[in-house]
Design a protein around this nucleic acid. Structure first.
Length: 849
RNA sequence: GCGGGCGUGGUGGAAUUGGUAGACGCGCGGGAUUCAAAAUCCCGUUCCGCAAGGAGUGUGGGUUCGAUUCCCACCGCCCGCACCA
């Protein structure tokens, strides 16, 4: 019996025992606990922390496997590595669960964290669990409240009105996600935009700095930098005031401020449009019920840019007029229009229908003049305008601008405006200040007390944290904090009078804007220890989904800069390297009657068609999409781990797809990965030869060491996997030799970051000392990478006709002579004399006939 | 609507960044081993063609001795758009 068991054990790698055993060993040895005072060079590897939704999904597995491979690789290279994990634990799903399942958001969240932590541990990540944090705990968010007050003291926090999605039936604020087809998700009532007084952070103060900083982020994807650049949206233009031609009822306004990036088109202006939220529009509405009625209509629908910009253009002629600044005899009508955003620029604009798509559409609908002021050249002044012509050209029908290029004309308008004093050149950013107030319970309480005599007052530091009360109920819509008088009603810290706590909580993006600092240093009494934090920061490699390309990454960059400005940190950029990985996708299946089916609910019938396992009914194979609960195409990692073990799952996550692209989950893919794990195991268990040299294998080994290291360094895990497959194949083919023994030993080191349990188990069985997790990464011998012979491609007119094997470094004329001597070339040339011969040394010869 | 990206065999993808298209994996076909199965190993596998040869990287054009790679236009799909995280 025992003999058979031993034999079997050597035959196959058994992850069922090995995974847990090595995870326990790493734990006991504190292998992955990061030492902030280590003399070694430091490397901070971080993946975006998960929202504790309930269970780990394949996207998490892929994300954390990538980071783990890099973290383990860096350790083997001799770095002191910080690779932490935590929980982005505030947010809406917990409140939804509270309403649907009658559980407390805190209980639900903490149970999810416990479950997901166990799941992550099973995958064997090299994580420093001693630094684990959850943003929903007072020992995290209390420090965040202190930082918020620090920013407020520095003048970076202010209060202003802005629009939210308002559900008029539930009388509550909705997230964009909760607005479906313009209606509230629970009440079904049409959503309207409503103004609310909220807290803002002055990210626009840093617009130029955030933009400039992008140019130094060499280890960020170009596309993310470009997206952030466009988001910040720097533009040069003219800001000026239109004088009103008459009185505005109910106000003392005498002008309307506008900004334009196209001052050269100023003579093409045919109307001025106000946002429905503009003070003048609101003043008019107070006097005139028809205006009020229009504004209600214009505010229908949600607040998202996509919704506003695709909605039908609606306008209302106020009857007011403004005077054209360059031609006092011209008067322009003032409209209120639903496509003008109060949050952009000044909340008002002048419309140039001939040269702006939106203005053209609006002018056509409301029969406003369309006047050409830009043409290809001066002779095109009278050309009809069929559609908006948004390009640059030459100014026409524009008085003193006629004949100037668009750029010159724009500069001239700004010059005249500045000289005459009616406007000035201005740099404008599309970036808006960050509204951080959320009318929700499950978030960081904003540490403010509102006093009728003193206004908003910061909670004194010695009273932090402002702890979120847990005794709340979710039987009514809205924020339960508003109804919790025991918590809400407090004395004013300044005057001692009766006052109220701020019941809004912070945007969860605030929580994720500094967690990487807290990971690096977590004293009890402060948000972080400066010197310790700076010893780790910036994060060397940050890995996460591309969906965070703008918001999270921009907010974190801002927050770090804000801390730098107020003197708390001397780090500006939080993430030196960024990598955005693709999603994990899977086929979708639908039954004949349209129900989505889980992959487990289907089977392949005898005929090869897929059918519903329970009923045998027909199944339609749908598109391959991101795994989602609604499409039921998720694959739970847990049973896969049970069946194949951690290393096979990890290996599959690294194989095939380039990490920045989507990875399609497939059963055959995981089986291929599991097979590879066993192949390596068999090699590792093979008896040693102990003698003999194999030069060819030696070269291949060193080539693999080089290729695998380069690929991991560049986060091209699929390529490192392919290089390892090749190496394994070469070792398998090689005859026993001491070189081969060494190659197998090295192979284990090379697979260790990706398949650590297998590597440890094999390492120990082979009698190596210590853990492979602590072993050094192998180095390659550069001389062994170069082959002495190369294959030259022989082309005729760019088409491959022959290949010849020659010594490396063959002279150009010799290569040319050999190529011309090729029989296949002779046939192609058919006696003709080549017109030209191109020789790329050691690569190809192209004969142009 | 605005911004960003992607498109290569049956399939996931590779291609030293302008130089032999299809590495490596999956699948499939054939064979070996086995009482049998599992597991494992070997050979083949872009398409058309018996072959010689020809075609081929979403489509159409361009630059070049040479284009998957650079440029222009188009088609399709995906992501983000400030309260999902």
């Amino acid at each position: 019996m025992a003999v058979t068991d031993d034999k079997r054990a050597n035959d196959r790698f058994d992850p069922r025992g090995a995974d847990a055993r090595w995870q326990a060993r790493w734990d006991e040895a504190k292998s992955f606990v990061a030492n902030s005072t280590s003399p070694k060079p430091k490397s901070y590897v971080l993946e975006m922390f998960p929202y504790p939704s309930g269970r780990i999904h394949m996207g998490h597995v892929r994300n954390y496997t990538m980071g783990d491979v890099l973290a383990r690789f860096r350790r083997m290279q001799g770095f002191e590595v910080l690779h932490p994990m935590g929980w982005d634990a505030f947010g809406m799903p917990a409140e939804n669960a509270a309403m649907e399942k009658k559980v407390h958001p805190g209980a639900w969240t903490r149970a999810n964290i416990a479950a997901m932590r166990q799941q992550l541990k099973r995958i064997g990540f090299a994580i420093d669990w001693s630094r684990e944090l959850a943003t929903c705990e007072p020992d995290y968010y209390g420090h965040e409240q202190a930082l918020f007050l620090d920013l407020m003291d520095a003048g970076l926090v202010y209060r202003k009105e802005s629009e939210v999605n308002w559900d008029p039936v539930d009388m509550t604020v909705l997230a964009n996600e909760q607005v479906i087809d313009g209606k509230g998700w629970r009440s079904g009532a049409p959503v309207v935009r409503k103004k609310l007084s909220q807290w803002f952070l002055k990210i626009t103060d840093f617009a130029e700095d955030l933009l400039e900083g992008l140019s130094h982020l060499d280890n960020w994807p170009d596309k993310v930098r470009l997206m952030q650049e466009n988001w910040i949206g720097k533009s040069q233009g003219l800001q000026f005031c239109f004088r009103l031609a008459g009185e505005v009822p109910g106000t003392n306004a005498c002008d309307i401020e506008v900004f334009t990036t196209r001052p050269d088109t100023i003579f093409g202006a045919s109307f001025v449009a106000l946002s429905p939220g503009h003070p003048i529009a609101e003043a008019l509405a107070a006097e005139d019920p028809k205006v009020a009625e229009f504004i209600v209509k214009a505010r229908a629908g949600g607040t998202t840019a996509a919704e506003i910009e695709t909605a039908e253009k609606l306008g209302y002629d106020t009857g007011l007029e403004v005077i054209h600044p360059c031609d006092p005899s011209r008067k322009l009508p003032v409209w209120i229009a639903n496509f003008v955003l109060m949050d952009y620029g000044t909340g008002a604009l002048f419309g140039v229908p001939a040269h702006d798509v939106r203005d053209f559409e609006f002018a056509t609908k409301y029969k406003l003049p369309i006047r050409r002021v830009v043409a290809g050249d001066i002779s095109g002044a009278d050309g009809p305008v069929i559609e908006a012509e948004t390009g640059a050209g030459v100014a026409v029908n524009s008085s003193f601008l006629d004949g100037m290029t668009s750029a010159k004309a724009g500069a001239e308008v700004i010059r005249r405006a500045e000289t005459a004093g009616w406007g000035s050149g201005k740099t404008q950013y599309r970036l808006r200040d960050w509204g951080v107030s959320r009318q929700r319970y499950w978030g960081t309480p904003i540490p403010i007390i509102h006093c009728d005599s003193c206004g908003p007052v910061g909670v004194p530091r010695d009273q932090l944290p402002v702890v979120l009360p847990e005794d709340v109920s979710f039987d009514l819509p809205g924020n339960p904090l508003d109804r919790h008088d025991g918590w809400r009603l407090v004395d004013c810290p300044k005057c001692g009078g009766q006052a109220r706590r701020e019941t809004d909580t912070l945007d969860t993006f605030v929580d994720s804007s500094w967690y990487f600092i807290r990971f690096a240093s977590q004293p009890r009494d402060r948000p972080f220890n400066r010197a310790e934090a700076e010893s780790w920061l910036p994060v060397g490699q940050y890995i996460g989904g591309v969906e965070h390309a703008i918001l999270h990454l921009l907010y974190a960059r801002f927050w770090t800069r804000a801390l730098e400005r107020i003197g708390m940190l001397s780090v500006k950029e939080p993430f030196a390297g960024l990598f955005t990985q693709g999603m994990v996708t899977h086929e979708t299946y639908q039954s004949a009657d349209g129900r989505w089916l889980n992959p487990e609910e289907i089977r392949v019938s005898d005929g090869g068609a897929i059918v519903e396992a329970a009923s045998g009914g027909g199944v339609v194979r749908g598109r391959t999409e991101k795994m989602s609960k609604s499409k039921k195409n998720t694959v739970d990692p847990e049973p896969i781990l049970d069946r194949y073990g951690a290393d096979a799952v990890r290996w599959f996550m690294l194989s095939d797809s380039p990490p920045e692209r989507d990875l399609e989950w497939s059963e055959s893919g995981i089986e291929g990965a599991a097979r590879f794990v066993q192949r390596v195991w068999r090699l590792a268990m093979a008896p040693a030869a102990n003698s003999g040299e194999d030069d060819a294998l030696q070269r291949k080994l060193h080539r693999a060491i080089h290729a695998v290291g380069e690929a991991i360094d560049a986060l091209q895990f699929n390529k490192s996997v392919a290089a390892l497959y090749e190496l394994v194949s070469e070792i398998e083919k090689a005859k026993p030799s001491a070189t081969r023994d060494e190659a197998i030993r090295t192979l284990l080191l090379l697979v260790a970051p990706g398949a650590p349990h297998l590597a440890e188990e094999a390492w120990a069985r082979r009698g190596e000392s210590g853990m492979i997790a602590d072993a050094a990464w192998p180095t390659h011998e550069p001389a062994l990478l170069i082959d002495e012979t190369v294959t030259l491609a022989i082309q005729v007119n760019g088409k491959l006709r022959d290949t010849i094997s020659v010594a490396r470094g063959l002279a150009r004329d010799e290569a040319e002579a050999l190529a011309l001597g090729s029989a296949k070339v002779q046939v192609q040339l058919a006696g003709a004399t080549p017109r030209k011969v191109i020789v790329v040394p050691d690569r190809l010869v192209n004969i142009v006939a």
